[in-house]
Amino acid sequence: MEQNKEMTAEESLSLITETLNSNRKEITRRSGKYYMLWGILLMVFSLIVYFLWKYTDNATWNCLWFAMPVIGFLAARLGLDKKQEGKVSNDVSRITGGIWSTFGIFACAVAAFTLIYGQLNEGADGLGRIISTLVALGSLTAEIVLLFGLAESICGVALKSWVIKIAGFVTGIGGLAIYYITRANEEQMFIFTFAGLVLVATGLIIKHQYK
């Protein structure tokens, strides 16, 4: 690009339009790696919790979920953001960042509430306690997967991407449907494995579409 090139009015306007479009595409493309990171983490955590829950018959392993946002945040900061790539932010990246942060806060708050609820029911008799814990954990999966799908769909609206909007809908409503159909204990972790898979696929599609 030269600074002294004589441009016509048409060339100048075309340069502005092209630059604005390629800038927007680049910012969207960069969000793809974060979808992939969180998708992989979601899959890994869901499978770890599934196996630990299944082989120890103890639902307390769900507490491991609280470590995921910490690991994800550190991985994003130390792994993805450390590259020599220039940094950029716009309204869209700020909004999508805000959506996922809000989702994280809501998910942790709902999970913490469920744990406290379980503690409050500690006085209940054996069967009553088991039932209340299972109900709380079960509804937690349904609530989080629905919040997750909602967050992803809103991101799709912000990024003007039908792929992300549909992926959010599939994860939220599909995950909820799987939960209500199966209602299994540790198997419900596969809903999150599926959600993680959808996130990874979304990231790959974004990177491919906007390269």
């Binding site: 690009m1 340069l15 502005i16 630059t19 604005l20 800038n23 910012i27 940094k87 932010s89």
Partner: peptide, 22 residues
């Protein structure tokens, strides 16, 4: 009305802020 300065301004018009590398 210079190609490079116009490109810089077009980029900055669409973002909150950015850095030299970008």
């Amino acid at each position: 009305h210079s190609e490079l300065r116009l490109a810089i301004m077009s980029i900055l018009a669409g973002v909150d802020e950015t850095d030299f590398n970008y």
